[in-house]
Amino acid sequence: MGKSPLLSVTGLSARVADEEIDILRGVDLAIRPGETHAIMGPNGSGKSTLAKVVAGHPTYETTGGSVALRGEDLLEMEPDERSQAGVFMAFQYPIAIPGVSIANFLRTALQARLEDGEELDLFDFQELLMERMELLEMDPAFAQRPVNDGFSGGEKKRNEILQMAVLKPALALMDETDSGLDIDALRVVAHGVNRLREENPEMAVLLITHYQRILNHVIPDVVHVMYRGRIVESGGPEVAMELEARGYEEYRKAHVA
């Protein structure tokens, strides 16, 4: 693993802007190209906050540390610049955009990546979209539905992965994409993620999850445990197994001690 990290997070602390208490309290994390990391941790430990701070959510302000992508300071960038630099976050709770179809949404997102005056080739786009929907076993008619408007929980998650498959990020932050998916859907989504990893062996994945299940399909290189705004343990896939068996009790005790 001689490669330099794609994403490096060092000593990162962050809070909700204008609040007093840090949610992230010194997170250290380095992900190299091609690696898949999983983060597990109890509810409220700061997993989503970490993903959102990396993606540039305006609600949070960083109070220390740094976040870099390929050595470039991400914290200085607007969310759209981070996206164009290769960051993609699959939301834990995707947002509805009434009146904007998935097709229109993705077309606009791709168009935004082009230089001024350059026009997206609509045939190529249509082809890519259809191919991606097929990969994720989605009905083509779905592309005409307004983004996340009235979607079921599972449909929303699948739609996040569709966007990821179309935008082809260098770094995919997947925040509980497995929650709310039925067993078959989980398999399809995991297959989609693996396909993207095959297509682009340099793609790095940060998978936030509560369950061991998805890690049977998308095998992680490293599993981290987050507790109260810090990464308190890192190891191989066996960490996830152990957590499944014994829960977070030991961290709680350690924290109290």
């Binding site: 759209d80 939301f91 009146g99 949404f105």
Partner: peptide, 25 residues
Amino acid sequence: AEALFYLMSRGMSRERAERLVVTGF
């Protein structure tokens, strides 16, 4: 603001994101 962030996180500038939300609305 959540909707705008969602769109911006897909690479759209704030202006483009606003236009999309308004025309969608």
